[in-house]
Design a protein around this nucleic acid. Structure first.
Lengths: 218, 218, 218, 218
DNA sequence: TATGAATGAGCATTCATTCAT
DNA sequence: TATGAATGAATGCTCATTCAT
């Protein structure tokens, strides 16, 4: 009963779902620890304490497993961050809450964040092209652009190229996580606040100090 | 006479240096075209029109070859950008020239830039850790930090966390190149100008429009 | 209650027999469509719309399933052809009816014929030897030999090596089906008539035209 | 230096050719002994006493190796049989010499013949279709058809459907080898002579005994 | 110096079979 | 009876590295 047969409206049994979750979890831990290129199905199976074939039984292949990991983490981040953003009055606060939110998620789910980044960077399709690269980021960019445009229309933000800003913000956030991965003692929340300050300075209309005296990252 | 024995002060013969340069060049072209994971030594050798064994003879292994590629390109970028930065009067102009400079280098040496990014992302040591991750970036961060501090001391820049800014700027520049790689028709110079504007807005003290009316990225 | 325990004189329940027939049918369709090597138990189960385990429950293993398919089809062919042959007066007519009969059966049960051929060709025992090769064909050869000898004794057929003829006739018939499988628009009945002519020319005593003006295969 | 790079007019070194011949030979022996489905690259390598990777080094893949085996044996058979056929005056003698010739080749190269048959039967392409099946036999059929037509035009052979005859003859010859494979003590040359008699009786115009008193297969 | 040859570990995937429920 | 789950061996293939010539 391969997963490829499942989207036909069939439900997954409880045990099936549990196994898939267990395997996804083992994949996350393995990728976070060893990096995507070393996270072979054999190693993931060893991490999970199961036979190699179990993964093939529950997932169509490595690609589907990775898709599920990405979807899992993505969904989780969205559930954490989006509601908080919606609750904000201003675009500025929404932007700040966004960055703060993903940083908090990362802090609480370090391995999942690391695995997500690894998969984004390394996963390729059969022809060698990135599976989640570039073009898949488009929805993210568009989401940010909508946020910027709302701020521009409300007069909060000045006039600037929203695509360049979206790419830069996304990159800066990714860079923050990567820096934190390399320096695990780095103060991630403080970095997130600083980064939000910088980004708001970059695009806000009124330059008067928008943030209280900031603390430095350690 | 493996290359690992070479740092002992022995000189490389002319022919040796030529061969290494030829191999490095083939590596750059192969990585840029096929991506790091597909750039096996066999493919690099084929690109160079030489036998696989030659690479092993001239380089300790794949890792050393990648080191050399990175060093080569890095040095070239530095030689292009640093003198121009030194020629500027203000920190703002230095920062702008820096971003403009690397963008120009990338435009003129697209393959080298692409290969550099691929190696940074994919190369790992035996234990799965990134070979060029984070720690190797430290000199870059420090260089940017010095630039920021100079601007802060001269009153050009406001007070902000220089490490966070350095990480963010570096990430935004990397993101710019990646976006350009995925969208080859993207207007890189325009993006670079926009990015410089954003960064300067983020850190300059005076809020009055510091840049002339900018053009948008296409 | 594995099937391997069944030949001990125990009867199969109605439901048991129905299930086995269902599975055999699914095996035939799967093999005919995908070829023996691609007809895994999983695919056969999917064709039948049942779980993989059911097959293992009702059959000792893949080998026994294949045995049953072969026996099923074989029996059916025999039931179709043998009575017709018995009704003929001469050995010549019996031979012609035999070939015509199997061709007619094949036309009406294309999948079963195709599956039979696939199993004959591909099925092997654990040591790599064909499961239905040669030795299992002995009864067929002997049946044909009896037919030839009867014709020789009645003076219809000349003197020739009956074993060589039996092997050749069987092969020519198999070849006819294989050719038809590869060229589905081939005129099988016409081919069968032509083949009967050729075989009779090869062994009949009187060379004068034994067949009415024949039509050619398209 | 994969073989796929070789057709570009590059010569193979002596040692390269020797290795390829050695591997082809090991493949023939392995297939003949264990059957195609059990002749994995690992087993072939073990037969040859070499590492698994050597095969991948010298051949593009399993498919190319099998192609080479087929081509090798085919060429050898052609070199044995064709000149002898050309030396005959009549179509009848050419047909007889053809069958006698392949039988003699088989007798002297039993394993090669067995391996050829195995590959023809079992080798499939990626989509599951036979690699050498049916359509590839067309040249053989056409060769036989030309022979028949020449005989018909010279008045040696009667009028009959040449395609049916070609398929039947080819099948009967294949069946002869298969019978001999199953019964290794079978008198192959005698079978071949008998078969030639039968085929000539089937198609020759004059009914008077064309062959001397024949011996029976044992 | 340079080469082609060889190695052996590792890869994702497929499969018949077994088994507890 | 029937099922889904799990197993582990086997498959073709890739690759960095080693080595004799």
């Amino acid at each position: 009963m391969r997963s490829k047969n499942k989207p036909d409206g069939q439900k997954r049994s409880f045990i099936e779902r549990a196994r898939r979750e267990q395997i996804i979890d083992a994949a996350v831990r393995t990728i976070a620890e060893l990096g995507y290129p070393n996270a072979s199905l054999a190693r993931i199976a060893r991490t999970a304490g199961i036979s190699k074939g179990v993964i093939s039984y529950h997932f169509e292949g490595k690609d589907e497993l990775m898709d599920q990991v990405v979807m899992d983490v993505y969904t989780e981040i969205g559930e954490t961050v989006v509601p908080r953003m919606m609750a904000q009055d201003s675009s500025s606060e929404a932007l700040r809450v966004h960055i703060r939110g993903v940083a908090e998620y990362a802090l609480e789910h370090r391995e999942r964040m690391a695995a997500l980044a690894q998969i984004f960077i390394h996963a390729r399709d059969a022809r060698g092209n990135p599976r989640y690269g570039g073009l898949q980021a488009e929805p993210l960019y568009e989401g940010l652009e909508n946020l910027y445009r709302a701020g521009q229309e409300s007069g909060e933000f000045r006039d600037f190229d929203v695509r360049v800003m979206a790419v830069s913000q996304q990159s800066a956030v990714d860079g923050m996580f990567e820096y934190w991965r390399v320096h695990p003692d780095h103060d991630l929340p403080a970095h997130a606040e600083q980064l939000a300050d910088l980004l708001l300075h970059a695009i806000r209309v009124e330059p008067s100090s928008p943030a209280p005296p900031t603390t430095r990252s350690p």
